[in-house]
Design a protein around this nucleic acid. Structure first.
Length: 287
DNA sequence: TATTCGTGGCG
DNA sequence: TCGCCAAGAAT
């Protein structure tokens, strides 16, 4: 079985990430998972350390002003995640007695927590058996199990079933294997240049056995960035984050020449709760 | 189901 | 240089 190869490999080779250290609470794991959504480990590490020092339990974060939360989030990207984490903290404090729930359904009911994050918290925060399916795991399964060069479009139910079939019955063992599958995809079975020479599952890999055929299926379209609303929103948020207080509209006008796009983006930030207008007409992070 | 939502490093 | 990529979720 794949699991029997990955288990010892992970125990020996796992990176020493701060949220994996003994004593990390489920809350710490939840925070790390929010930050790691679409964001590389190296960029998350310092922000997570600072975050956990300031807000060691959910009610601490829930009590913080939005502006502080958004500034602490810094340049991790997708700042709506910070809003959702803030809201999730409030829900945990009010509805779960300030304790992160271990139940997957209860987790998935929290803002910003989807199928992946709910199972990741159950597995890594509580040591439970929960099939954790992220982009790394999908790639590892596509190669090792299905002999395909890459994963292709998500097949949510089938992906969950694939991973479920790989996990040992025991909770603690399954949690380690789940972490190991992700680790393998992150450091060995990578998207671009897989390091098959370092793979513990080399001899069991269906893709290697098939001669590493090139992936021919549908590719997910690459997202552009330059000139998009995402770029403009990012520039506006950077001004609001950096400023010590409310800023004049003039300061925001300076970040983008296209007034129509600029206004649309500013409006969307207001709608998203990432910015607000003060009584005197200036703009700021939410109080 | 297809888009949208930031940011920055790397080959 | 620039396309690709990085522990997804919401709509």
């Amino acid at each position: 079985m794949l699991a029997e190869l990955i288990f010892p490999w992970f125990r020996a080779q796992a990176r020493d990430l701060p949220w994996r250290r003994p004593g990390t609470t489920p809350w710490g794991v939840l925070v790390s998972e929010f930050m790691l959504q679409q964001t590389p480990v190296a960029r998350v590490e310092p922000v997570w350390q600072d975050w956990m020092g300031r807000w060691p339990v959910p009610s601490d974060l829930a009590a913080a002003p939005r502006a502080d939360v958004l500034r602490a989030w810094g340049k991790l990207g997708y700042p709506r995640r910070a809003i959702r984490l803030h809201d999730a903290a409030a829900a945990i404090a009010e509805q779960h007695g300030d304790a992160v729930p271990s139940d997957v359904d209860a987790l998935e009911a929290l803002p910003g927590v989807g199928s992946y994050t709910a199972r990741a918290v159950a597995a890594f925060g509580f040591g439970l058996r929960a099939p954790v399916v992220d982009t790394n795991v999908r790639r590892v399964v596509a190669r090792a199990v299905h002999g395909q060069g890459d994963a292709g479009p998500a097949r949510t139910r089938a992906d969950l079933a694939d991973v479920d079939a790989l996990l040992p019955r025991d909770d603690a063992e399954a949690a380690v294997v789940s972490a190991g599958l992700m680790e393998l995809g992150a450091v060995v079975c990578t998207a671009r240049t897989p390091r098959c020479g370092s793979c513990p599952a080399l001899d069991r890999c269906a893709w290697v056995a098939a001669g590493k055929p090139a992936y021919d299926g549908p590719r997910k379209p690459v997202q552009g960035f330059a000139g998009t609303d995402r770029q403009v929103r990012g520039k506006l948020m950077d001004v609001l984050r950096t400023a010590p207080g409310p800023v004049e509209r003039i300061a925001l006008d300076a970040v983008w020449s296209d007034a129509g796009q600029r206004d649309r983006c500013l409006h969307s930030l207001l709608v998203d709760g990432l910015a607000e207008q003060t009584d005197d007409g200036r703009f700021a992070l939410p109080a």
